[in-house]
């Protein structure tokens, strides 16, 4: 055998490679190539854009352990928000580091999560503490106005609404404004009084025609039976029917009030569902950031 230092090295290298291949095959390990920082970010972005948010968060978190990254840090919060884990998103955005370039956006998203959690009173208090030089002041002002559409409070002047909602969907939002002003309502007192006057009338007023007629017939029959029995001298039976009449008479007044309340709630819920759908479509008039362009 010829002494050749190069050949020795070759053999050593070969052995080394063979060993590497064998060892990697034995202890199943993921290939390093797919787990470099750059590739992890790429894969994480892919997950984020296919709405696989929780996996994206995991991927981003592993990336952040290797190297700080402002965008990823922001997108983690966004992922929680889009998974509708508003509680986590709210805390996350609230404690977002000021030195991150996405700090204003995180602040806006913090406001938005409070809004999405329907914590409208808290939202308005937070809004009172905000200042006009905040980058997204118009956005949070709009959200602030929108809180009124979800609550039973006097609405702000429509000219203010018009002023701040200078957006393509302006007319639609004004339509919702007018709809809120004219939301059909039935008075609970009127429903109760009407049924006290004529059994069943309150139910009819609250939109329940069939129930109203049934209540009227019920009260009529029971009342007649009470009267008829008293007249015929059947005192005990008379009292039983009188008692039943009283119960159904009271029950109908109670039920009329409840029916009016349900009527109001139904209109309110339908209105809010419609409004929420619209706002979701418009992304609550907040920026989309276009991370998945």
């Amino acid at each position: 055998m010829r002494k050749n230092p190069n050949g020795k090295i070759t053999i050593v290298y070969l052995l080394f490679f063979v060993f590497q291949i064998i060892s990697s095959a034995q202890t199943i390990k993921p290939p390093d190539k797919f787990f470099t920082l750059l590739n992890r970010i790429k894969f994480g972005n892919h997950l984020f854009c296919t709405k696989d948010y929780l996996r994206a968060v995991e991927e981003y978190r592993s990336c952040l352990k290797l190297k700080p990254n402002d965008t990823l840090q922001f997108k983690i919060g966004l992922a929680y928000e889009r998974m509708k884990k508003f509680g986590i998103a709210k805390m996350y955005f609230n404690s977002f580091p000021q030195e991150n370039i996405f700090f204003p956006e995180a602040r806006l998203e913090f406001y938005k999560t409070v809004f999405l959690m329907k914590q409208f009173r808290e939202f308005r208090n937070l809004y009172l503490g905000s200042t006009g030089n905040f980058k997204y002041f118009p956005e949070i002002t709009r959200l602030n106005y929108l809180t009124y559409l979800f609550e039973d409070l006097p609405l702000p002047d429509s000219s203010n609404f018009r002023l701040w909602f200078n957006v393509p969907a302006k007319e639609e939002i004004m339509k919702f404004y007018r709809k809120k002003v004219n939301l059909p309502r039935k008075s609970l007192t009127a429903a109760g009084l009407l049924s006290a006057l004529i059994p069943g009338l309150g139910k009819i007023y609250a939109g329940e025609l069939g129930d109203g007629i049934t209540a009227f017939i019920f009260n009529g029959i029971l009342g007649f039976l009470a009267y008829d029995n008293f007249r015929a001298g059947h005192k005990t039976r008379g009292w039983i029917f009188a008692g039943l009449t009283a119960i159904f008479y009271g029950g109908n007044i109670y039920g009329s009030v409840a029916a009016a309340q349900i009527y109001n709630k139904r209109n309110k819920v339908n209105y809010e569902q419609e409004l929420s759908k619209f706002l979701e479509r418009e992304n609550y008039f907040t920026p989309d950031y276009n991370f998945c362009k």
Partner: peptide
Amino acid sequence: GFSRLVAQSNLDSQLNY
């Protein structure tokens, strides 16, 4: 040869994992 082997086995070992 080795780099081809690695290029192939990256996906294969990902599958194994």
